[in-house]
Design a protein around this nucleic acid. Structure first.
Lengths: 238, 238
DNA sequence: GCCCATAGTTGAACGTGTTCAAATTCAGCT
DNA sequence: AGCTGAATTTGAACACGTTCAACTATGGGC
């Protein structure tokens, strides 16, 4: 009675998937701005209005892009992580493969951040606790930590996945702006920052750093909570 | 012969200023998205095309907003700085007045960052070495440092104005997203981060931190240089 | 077999930012 | 006074994202 709705929602899902595939393909080939909703609809063989029936706006197509990207990255990085035991090596692997995965979308990614940085945008990666992609991404950094043979105090260990995710967002932001050949600058930045991060984490784990560490972590928690509460009222307005 | 071109460029400057004033006023009252170029042109008493003759795009109107904001902030903060002697107090003063100054534009500011975060945007505050507003803003933090009675090693002292500017950008970013009453959260964040920054600067100035400090500063310089070189090729395309 | 609520689909229409060829004004020159 | 080229100004036109009232298909209930 409630399970056998094969056609009811089935048709819609199919059309939605078709539009999404078409859009992502065109984004990859021509970039975001150069891909019009009309062109997507036409190539997908549906009407313009139909595309808007499934995606409230052009921006919402980007959310699907986030998801796709993360899945691809996971598939690449998880097997590689099994061979790396130190925190530094594991972080390096994650960051390098992340950039590798994003490469085909370099042009497209610029727009991604432009819209994501807007507070009212539904794509703002810092808002909306329930965003599954972000949670999954933070989860990956938790896994990076778990598998590493390193002693880290519990208070820091709790917040580190989130902090590493923020760091990783920073690297991505740099990569978006990086027009050097083969994005060498970004890879070099990853090498340097991971090395530095590794040292900082060890320093912060030192017992005599405890008071300063505690203070910094309190701040981090406050920031994170604020980010999650923010923009709540704007859901109604939209 | 070359000084007396009163009317030649004078007329244009006048029209340009008129359009700008009108636009900023409407931005403040209705927000950026709700202010159309047509409305600006009409209120300014010029044609739509004329507005585009002086401002290549709607975004270019924002650049003037940056400038205006900084000038206002300077006028407020410079007198106040004369009474503050410690680094911490001086930083607090600068940051608090910054938010005070921006308050009337809270809604508008969201869009500002949205466009500014786009790598190809002419407003990207990290690109374009020659951006005068950014230089002036960094200069303010240099002044904050100069007037403070604190011993800081030369290598750090050189980079600190830039680093403080980046920090200040982070606070502004938070403020844009902050919908708490009277932006209390932002002011609280400023209190906490300035306190932390003060401690970190003292820690980093400690002789035994020298190697780590050197490494971190090398990274900072590289990042800064990269940001300045970036997006150069895109000037042609635009 | 008919009905109807719901899911799905359509394309015209709106308002927007932006472009551009043409018209107009203006200062200096003859 | 008239000419010339540059600066300025115009408004129609374009392409786009988005909305919406209307239409069609579908499948479960009688």
């Amino acid at each position: 009675m409630r399970k056998q709705k094969t056609t009811k929602t089935g048709k819609g899902d199919q059309t939605k998937a078709l539009i999404l595939e078409t859009a992502l393909e065109m984004f990859r080939e021509r970039g975001y701005d150069e891909t019009t909703m009309r062109a997507v609809a036409q190539k997908a063989g549906v009407s313009l209005g139909n595309a808007y029936y499934y995606f409230r706006s052009k921006e919402y197509l980007i959310q699907a892009f986030y998801q796709r990207l993360h899945d691809t990255h996971l598939a690449v990085v998880l097997p590689l992580l099994e061979h790396e035991k130190t925190l530094k090596a594991r972080l390096l692997t994650v960051m390098r493969t992340k950039i590798d995965t994003m490469k085909p979308y370099h042009q497209f990614a610029g727009v991604l951040f432009k819209t994501a940085a807007h507070p009212e945008s539904p794509l703002n990666p810092f808002a909306d606790e329930s965003d599954p992609v972000r949670q999954a991404s933070i989860q990956l950094f938790a896994k990076v930590l778990e598998g590493a043979k390193v002693r880290i105090p519990q208070d820091l260990r709790t917040e580190l996945p989130y902090l590493l995710w923020v760091y990783h967002m920073g690297i991505v932001l740099f990569w978006i702006h990086d027009s050097s050949p083969k994005h060498r600058r970004t890879y070099r930045l990853i090498n340097h920052t991971v090395d530095l991060l590794d040292k900082l984490i060890h320093l912060a784990s030192n017992p005599f750093m405890r008071p300063l560490r505690k203070q910094a972590l309190r701040l981090v928690v406050e920031l994170r909570d604020a980010a999650e509460t923010i923009d709540d009222e704007e859901q109604e307005t939209a």
